[in-house]
């Protein structure tokens, strides 16, 4: 493989990894705070792309405005799913919550097929995302650079919120010990809603960047990216936010490299991700950056 092809793959890997990271955050934050694997998260990701599609195609809004609107609407949908499907089950066994999440996932997929139709739609792409950049013989799609920059930007905003704001402190407190967090007069319901809003907003950003890379959307498009981002979250240690980011980049990067170096195995790229999940669960179930706090009693 020549150097320029290799560099193209590096860029591809990083951009795919950035998307996984954005989606993985939603899984890991919700798990941290509710101990729930929110299997509807991939479908929230799908909704983000449709919100943008309709804003542009039906309401003829400018693309940037549609982008912002889609993020807000997706965040609201996330908050709503928690209120309707998870909050009433807060004190039920965790398996009920999980089943409810799977139910929400099926509901969103099928509601999507009914309302958006199952036929894939062409995703509106402004021209700037179509260009190809050539630096010293390395051909790079602009959209990949954008994906990397935008995902890094949002990941940095997220880290700032989680580690430097009062809301972030409340989130971390709840995820360690909900009852004691309540004793600190933290508004637990509000904090959980904010968590869902942030996770869903990042999923929308991920979904839209995804649709810019692969500009066809359909109501079932969230399943595989959703599962892979879940794997990324597990790789990084579910509940651990920086871990989910690293896990996302790691998974995206290895997936692209697998295809690049062993093109004959490219049909197995999804299977490869699940293989990683199985290996992690077998040998390092806490993930690469799992619980690192030692407790003295």
């Amino acid at each position: 493989m020549s150097f320029n092809i290799f560099m193209q793959n590096v860029v591809n890997g990083l951009s795919l990894g950035g998307l996984y990271a954005l989606i993985a955050i939603g899984y890991t934050m919700v798990y941290g705070i509710l101990r729930l694997i929110n299997f509807a998260h991939g479908d929230i990701f799908m909704l983000g792309t449709y919100f943008l599609f309709y804003a542009v195609a039906i309401f003829h809004l400018p693309w940037w405005l549609s982008f912002i609107l889609a993020i807000i609407l997706t965040a609201l949908t996330g908050v709503l799913t928690e209120k309707i499907a998870y909050r009433p089950l807060r004190n039920s066994p965790r398996i009920s919550l999980l089943i409810s999440a799977i139910g929400v996932s099926f509901f969103l997929q099928n509601a999507g097929i009914v309302t958006f139709s199952g036929i894939p739609k062409a995703f509106p792409r402004p021209d700037i995302f179509k260009k190809i950049l050539i630096i010293a013989d390395i051909r790079i799609q602009i959209v990949n650079i954008n994906a990397i920059v935008i995902s890094l930007l949002f990941l940095m905003i997220l880290l700032y919120i989680v580690y430097n704001t009062k809301t972030g402190l409340a989130m971390r407190a709840i995820s360690t010990d909900t009852e004691t967090a309540r004793l600190m007069a933290i508004d637990v319901n509000r904090t959980i809603s904010i968590t869902f809003a942030i996770g869903s907003a990042l999923a929308a950003v991920g979904g839209i960047l995804w649709a810019l890379k692969y500009p066809q959307i359909n109501p079932l498009m969230g399943i595989i990216p959703g599962l892979k981002a879940f794997i990324a979250a597990v790789v990084g240690g579910i509940g651990n936010i920086p871990g989910a980011m690293v896990g996302g980049f790691l998974l995206g990067f290895t997936e692209i490299m697998l295809v690049a170096f062993l093109p004959r195995l490219s049909g197995y790229r999804d299977a490869f991700a699940f293989l990683i999940l199985i290996l992690i669960l077998l040998f390092k179930p806490d993930g690469l950056f799992g619980k690192n706090v030692q407790e003295k009693v």
Binding site: L169, A173, D177, I186, V293
Partner: peptide, 28 residues
């Protein structure tokens, strides 16, 4: 908010947060 507070059994500090963050949470 009305002025009650509890020091729970078994201390229940937030082990993965710093001492300073724990104190900040008290004044949440």
């Amino acid at each position: 908010i009305r002025g009650l507070v509890m020091v729970p059994e078994g201390r229940r500090v937030f082990p993965n947060l710093t001492v300073y963050e724990n104190l900040q949470l008290g004044a949440f």
